[in-house]
Amino acid sequence: MKLLRNRRAMIILAGLIVAANGFFPALWILFTSFKTEVELMRVPITIIPQAPTIENYIRVFVDQPILRFLFNSVVVAVLSTLLCVTCSALAAYALVRLRLPGAGIILSVLLAIAMFPLISMMVPLFQVMRDLGLLNTWWALIFPHAVLSMPVCTLVLISFFQDIPRDLENAAMIDGCTRLGALWHVVIPLTAPGVFTAGILAFVNSWDEFLLALTLSPRVASRTLPVGITLYQGEFSFPWPIISAALIVAIVPICIVIAIFQERVVSGLTSGGVKG
């Protein structure tokens, strides 16, 4: 009994550590974004802002075209997510259902690609995008972002698709669907939690991505948020409160996206369709 209680306590402690690890930086940024630079530098340090100000947020919108960055980020993240999830769903379905020869090898290669260091692809990617004339356009980021998230999204979707009884698709195909129709009308709705999980992964990956965005889309007008935020840094200054405010502006949309999707990620959707 004592052992059990200790175990429980340890699990709770581990959970608290993980949660604190995630939340502390975010909270710190949030508090910093409401502080003046003077308060930030004061010793002893304050955690809660003593004289909260929204001046930093005003500066965020005045100093740089952050709405433009936000818009660029939204377009790149949404389109790359759609592209990624569509391709991943088709790939996962083919790997799960079509008895492809060499499916195992394809899976291994997918895993290997997922582990490939991004930096090693930068130079060839830059050259390709330059030759295609796509540098400083959304597409220079949409395509690579979609491709980068594809392996992990495919693997996520494979695990969900495997749980769908084959006879549901068979029934749909007898009812008049093509194979793609069965995927669209039956498999995708039933694996909505998986599809949204893959979507969130792809969206967050694209939203956070810095290296490609800096290299392939450096012009101010086409910058995404992660790169745009670096513009707040002066040559000799580092305005922490303003940068924190900009970070909050970047974090809020993704929180909203996750909150919306999370509600859709409901389990038990497949119960009752087949015996059980």
Binding site: D167, N170, A171, I174, L190, L269, T270, G273, V274, K275
Partner: peptide
């Protein structure tokens, strides 16, 4: 132009 009834019903749960 066939219809089929499956052992596990295969109803669309959604």
């Amino acid at each position: 132009d066939i219809a089929m009834v499956f052992q596990d019903y295969a109803l669309y749960p959604h």
